[in-house]
């Protein structure tokens, strides 16, 4: 059974497709579909592309899990990523790296709130609704706000110091 996703179909995460989102989007058609045509939004902007998702089963415990087949390696995967060339692939095939893997050694991650932003974005997209998750989200938001204010103030101090130093240097 082929199900064509309409253009207005919600794309929850630009640049990636998750099996949980596909199940929610298919609703009652889940289980009867063998593939699905979706529109993929590139993660950093660009031209959307159309791709076909195929489902395949993976043994799990005593039963089977239905997952997405990676178009490149044909292995069952729960998440597929846009490869930047209009196609999809699993994490290994498209060499996808997380923000932590990519930025962990940078100043913006260590000192300018990148670590807190990473945790906050992952928590916000996890749809966790418990009181603890909500409190953690609020606490991370406040922490990131304070970091941003401190960054802004230190930048303004830097500007003031530079202007003062330039005046001293400029004076005959």
């Amino acid at each position: 059974m082929t199900i064509d996703a309409p253009i207005s179909h919600p794309q929850p995460r630009p640049g990636e497709v998750r099996i949980g989102d596909v199940r929610a989007a298919l609703g009652a058609d889940w289980g009867s579909a063998d593939h699905l045509v979706v529109e993929i939004l590139p993660p950093r902007g660009g031209i959307p592309s159309v791709s076909t998702l195929r489902f395949m089963s993976k043994p799990s415990g005593r039963g089977l899990h239905v997952l997405l087949a990676c178009p490149a390696c044909s292995e069952p995967r729960s998440v597929l990523y846009a490869d930047g060339r209009g196609g999809l692939g699993c994490r290994l095939c498209v060499r996808h790296r997380t923000r932590h893997q990519r930025d962990a050694r940078t100043t913006r991650y260590r000192s300018h709130g990148g670590r807190e932003l990473d945790r906050l974005l992952r928590l916000a997209s996890s749809r966790a609704t418990s009181a603890g998750a909500s409190a953690a989200l609020t606490a991370l938001g406040e922490q990131l706000k304070n970091t941003t204010r401190a960054l802004r103030d230190s930048t303004l101090d830097l500007v003031t110091a530079a202007l003062g130093a330039a005046e001293v240097t400029h004076a005959p």
């Binding site: 919600p10 929850p12 630009p14 989007a25 609703g27 916000a124 997209s125």
Partner: peptide, 14 residues
Amino acid sequence: ETVRLQQRIHAGGR
């Protein structure tokens, strides 16, 4: 925007 779309898509699911 992602959170909003997720909320919408999962509200219509099982």
